[in-house]
Design a protein around this nucleic acid. Structure first.
Lengths: 235, 235
DNA sequence: CGCATTTTTGAACCCCGTCAAGGCATGTGG
DNA sequence: CCACATGCCTTGACGGGGTTCAAAAATGCG
């Protein structure tokens, strides 16, 4: 998770972002479209479950976890978000966010008022298409994740997790082989449906098997083919 | 799953369905908006993963399972759909459906060309809002399901599953206490991240505990409070 | 009916969770 | 600077919930 520089080039919201006017999918007055930024310090919430919904966000710098609570008090991390990825979309359904979004490090986001996005997407077909695709892509991502939780063994989950992170770093032109895990083992475990001890043990085992090196939160991937084999993501 | 009668009254797509012109959220020419129906026989596919996307569907009668395949051949049931519920939305993201949709019994759907829906939602704000909410609601549903797979024990999953079905029957004015499970134990298990034997054992145990009665695919809920307690969906 | 599929139930095994102890950072106050 | 506390990570031993393997009963469909 690079801490400097924005990732506008790979941002999900680029097609309707006024920060790059020449990229904007329409010739609308810029005045209406100016995005604002917001900084969120480590541990603080961008939004909380139940907050009234009126904005969607794109991560600009840093990273976030999304956390959902069950009625009985248990909670689960349901997603990690890094630069360029959209947040807050689950609030559209009811007008209230369905989850907490917590910064894993000092972070910043681009803020897009949702009514503006609605307006723009009625005027400009390309924007409409992008919004739909963005929502649908989140659906697909979530579905793939359910498959992971429903069918994969613990080591497959951890391998998939590492490969997914690597992939997202690569897409943003950061190193796909070496990166920092901003989330704790407990958060990782919660996300993967495992206990923190299990995550730790499996990372240690991957290191013994020369698939990765682990140094606390620093990860280096040594053997992509091997990890893919463990994750069984190929035939 | 009642096999006769449609559920237009509770259908997700009602706000933009030309079958009920007086309900339609705009005064557009009806000619353009006529929905078509399609029948799908038990075991047949409404769409398959990879099929080119151009339509979204609403279940009219019967029921479907959504199935996602992993690259290595394993698959998982990622959803069950009954009357009034939307299908095919995962195709928007890439232009190709991300999953198979298979009829669990002889069923029928309402067909809505997606380009028409896009057009209509640009013209009519109310339609746009409904489409967004529908997509976001699917996101929230999926997220809640991830939480189930990630945090719940087997008996909690089965209890939640039964209560969820009951709730959906109630919303459609069918009996929430007695219904038929159109899916096999294996499909249920795949959906819940369990093996079919585990599902069977837990249903038997619920019956011994007088929470439900099981007779093959016939389920009757005897003790909602007890099931809720097992599912830990209350404090 | 007769065959295939589905469901139920039992018994043994194993992966992962639980419990516990210890290490290693980081930060804080004396 | 050190003593101490705190939070996070690692590792071990053990137990249990769920899977696996197996067989029989029930159901459905031709």
């Amino acid at each position: 998770m690079g801490s400097s520089g924005t990732s506008c080039k790979t941002c999900t919201m680029r097609p309707f972002c006024a920060v790059n006017p020449d990229e904007l999918a329409c010739d609308r007055q810029m005045d209406d479209l100016v995005l604002s930024y917001r900084h969120v310090r480590k541990g603080e919430a961008l939004h909380r479950a139940g907050d009234s919904f009126c904005k969607v966000y794109a991560v600009r710098t840093g990273s976030f976890k999304k956390r959902s609570l069950l009625p009985d008090g248990r909670d689960q991390v349901t997603g990690f978000y890094v630069a360029g990825e959209p947040m807050g979309l689950d609030g559209i359904a009811t007008g209230h966010y369905a989850s907490d979004a917590i910064a894993l490090e000092d972070s910043s986001v681009c803020v897009m008022p949702f009514d503006l996005l609605e307006l723009l997407s009625r005027e400009v077909k390309a924007v409409q298409g992008h919004v739909y695709r963005m929502l649908s892509a989140e659906l697909v991502r979530q579905g793939g994740f359910s498959t992971l939780l429903g069918t994969m063994a613990a080591d497959e989950r951890v391998a998939s997790f590492l490969l997914d992170l690597s992939q997202r770093w690569r897409a943003r032109a950061y190193s796909p082989t070496e990166f920092i895990l901003r989330m704790t083992r407990e958060e990782t475990g919660s996300f993967l449906g495992l206990k923190l001890e299990t995550v730790s043990r499996i990372l240690s085992r991957f290191q013994r098997q020369r698939l990765i090196t682990v140094n606390g939160k620093e990860i280096a991937i040594l053997d992509f083919a091997g990890l893919n084999k463990v994750a069984r993501l190929s035939a």
